[in-house]
Amino acid sequence: MFRRLLLWFGCWAMAGCSPQAARRAALERELLRLTDSVQAQVGIAAVLGEGDTLTINNKPGYPMASVFKFHQALALLDSLDRARLTPDFPLSVRSSDLLPDTWSPLRDARPEGGYSLSVAELLAYSIAHSDNNVCDLLFRFLGGPETVGRYIHGLGLSDTAVAADEETMHRDPATQYANTTSPLDAVRLLERFRRGELLRPSSTDLLMHTMLSTATGPDKLKGLLPAGTPVAHKTGSGLRDAQGTVAADNDIGIIFLPDGRTCSIAVLITDSAEADSTNAHTIALISKNIYNYLASEETIK
């Protein structure tokens, strides 16, 4: 409560300085209200402009769930770039790769195994459809989660850890807390990707297009934005324990505004006692408020 009072006092003081400061203070108050309105820990980070980053409840330790498939995709494409291979490079899919009792659109479509798909095709399953079996197949090609963890740490993102694959997390739900990040680390990674600092241009374009095609979580970051707003994003949904608490309900992505600006945003929810629909609606409300703030900023100018 004391932290809230200090923040509100600071916002009130800023509000007396300029209309822009008042708008920013109002946005932060509304985001705090939203995070306090649910039985969960909610972390937010967003890049509102060059050098202007907003954070609420930023700290390490938020379980990523399938958000880490974005991190894996970056490490995978970086490895191909370094080896001078293209995303057309084929990988074998065996029947033993297609485990039951996990989310896997590829297994549902082609359960027989014994075929090859290109890295680009596999990324479409892993990113756009969040296929758990494909994710683990890509981990095996890369050398395991530790390879992705080393890649991320090499980028200087000290709040992020990747240590468990999907099979491990489904076998032992406690390991959901092995793959973690902070909201700020997530948007820093999104920004470096967006600016083309991590991959070759063709690889950046491929992953951006794949994320724009994401089919999961239409009610999260995109849920309350104007129809047709492009959002390149990766969702994550954790498992619930015996008490009904879900480890993670997340969405991170890049929102494209009509005037050509972008907003990298991460909303991470952990230890939530709320229904999935409530978590998704909370993410959508946060995204809507940040979008409206940026849209009205252009109108004021």
Results as ranks from 00 to 15, higher is better:
S66Q: 00
L91V: 14
S95P: 15
S92N: 14
L91M: 11
P87D: 00
R82Y: 08
D88R: 13
K59I: 11
P63F: 02
L77I: 07
G61V: 00
P100N: 07
Y62R: 08
F68A: 07
D81M: 03
P60Y: 05
A65C: 12
L98V: 03
A83M: 10
L76M: 09
F89G: 11
D88P: 09
R84F: 10
A65P: 00
L76W: 02
R94C: 12
L85V: 00
A83Q: 10
F89K: 11
M64T: 14
S66K: 01
D78A: 12
L74F: 04
F70S: 15
V93P: 12
R94T: 03
N58W: 06
K69S: 03
P63Q: 08
R84C: 09
D78P: 01
K59F: 09
L91K: 04
P60I: 00
S66T: 11
S95R: 15
S92V: 14
P63E: 06
S95C: 13
N58T: 07
F89M: 13
D81G: 02
R84E: 12
S92G: 14
R94P: 11
P60M: 00
S96M: 10
V93G: 04
Y62P: 03
P60H: 04
A83T: 05
F68R: 14
S92E: 15
S92M: 15
S95M: 14
P87E: 00
L98D: 08
S95T: 12
P100R: 04
R94I: 00
D97C: 06
A65D: 02
D88I: 01
R82L: 13
S96G: 11
D81P: 04
D78Q: 10
H71Y: 04
S96V: 02
D101R: 03
D97T: 01
R82I: 10
F89S: 13
L98R: 12
V93M: 06
Y62Q: 04
R82E: 15
N58I: 03
H71P: 10
P60T: 03
L85T: 00
D101Y: 02
D101F: 03
K69W: 00
D78T: 10
F70T: 15
T86D: 10
V67E: 13
V93K: 05
S95I: 08
M64P: 04
R94A: 13
S92P: 14
L76D: 07
P60W: 01
V93Y: 08
G61F: 01
V93N: 06
L85F: 06
L76F: 05
Y62V: 00
F89W: 15
P63W: 06
L77K: 11
L85K: 12
K59W: 09
R82K: 13
P90A: 02
P63A: 04
N58F: 05
L85G: 08
L80P: 09
L77Y: 10
A65I: 11
K69E: 05
P87V: 01
